[in-house]
């Protein structure tokens, strides 16, 4: 059950993200990028396999490794979140600069001809 919920979440997020990314307004593009990065973050997390209430770090001695959650994807996803957050903020600044300089929020910097 939890696999289906997770797969649906990733699918819906990435589908809406892709659609928004292809839209002509810069605000839609940045929303699309954010949604896509959420989808990717959940996807990375799920690559460590889904486990409920499993500790991430093993104790001392020989124990069954399969009973523990894989800590590597958790470390990876943390890095990915930080980086995508920072770069989205940077993109937002460029987006505002573009709006300020060109006077249009279209990705081409000018309104399309009717």
């Amino acid at each position: 059950m939890k696999e289906i919920v997770l797969a649906l979440a990733i699918g819906v997020l990435s589908a809406s993200g892709t659609w928004l990314l292809l839209r002509p307004r810069t605000f839609q593009v940045i929303m699309g990028l954010s949604l896509l990065s959420y989808a990717v973050n959940i996807f990375i997390f799920s690559m460590g396999r889904l486990k409920t209430a499993a500790p991430p770090v093993t104790g001392t001695g020989a124990e069954d490794v399969a009973a523990y959650a894989d800590p590597t994807p958790q470390a990876l996803v943390l890095t990915a979140i930080v980086i995508s957050f920072a770069l989205t903020a940077l993109f937002l600044v460029v987006l505002l600069a573009s709006r300020g300089v060109t006077g249009s929020d279209h990705v081409d910097g000018r309104e399309p001809q009717e």
Binding site: L21, I83, S98
Partner: peptide, 17 residues
């Protein structure tokens, strides 16, 4: 530069994903 940079950043952010 800002217009070119906007496209450049969008493409590369997507590629990073």
């Amino acid at each position: 530069r800002i217009k070119a940079g906007l496209g450049y950043i969008a493409v590369n952010l997507t590629a990073s994903l």
